[in-house]
């Protein structure tokens, strides 16, 4: 039973990691590319780390909590670095595929 749960978590993590990197490689402008890895890859690594924590906790030697440390750190820092990257991209005036918003009060 635990074996199946671990296999499911490991496969989910690997597939989400691949999807995030696929988004990074395939999407067409920087802002959509930013969206891919910062969400999918973080989820994938989180799933893998949970699998690892379960695996080492059930193999004797007591509860294993190193993984929680890595997970916590990643989940705190990923949004911060994504925010900084978006700020840098806006500063460089990178082109976006989205239409610019309409100007407010132009005609009224």
């Amino acid at each position: 039973m635990l074996d199946y749960l671990l296999s499911f978590l490991i496969l989910t993590g690997a597939v989400f990691t691949l999807i995030g990197s696929l988004g990074l490689a395939r999407l067409r402008d920087f802002y959509t590319r930013l969206h891919g890895p910062t969400k999918a890859t973080t989820l994938g690594v989180g799933s893998l780390l949970i699998a690892s924590a379960l695996y080492f906790s059930t193999r004797g030697a007591g509860l294993s909590l190193h993984e929680v440390l890595v997970t916590l750190f990643l989940f705190i820092t990923a949004p911060v670095s994504a925010h900084l990257l978006a700020k840098a991209a806006l500063h460089l005036r990178l082109k976006s595929l989205a239409k610019p918003p309409e100007e407010e009060g132009g005609e009224a």
């Binding site: 920087f30 890895p37 973080t42 990643l74 990257l85 460089l92």
Partner: peptide, 14 residues
């Protein structure tokens, strides 16, 4: 762009 490369490095370490 340079921002793309930094994003790629970030993803690489994750």
């Amino acid at each position: 762009s340079p921002a793309d490369r930094i994003l790629a490095l970030d993803t690489l370490y994750v």
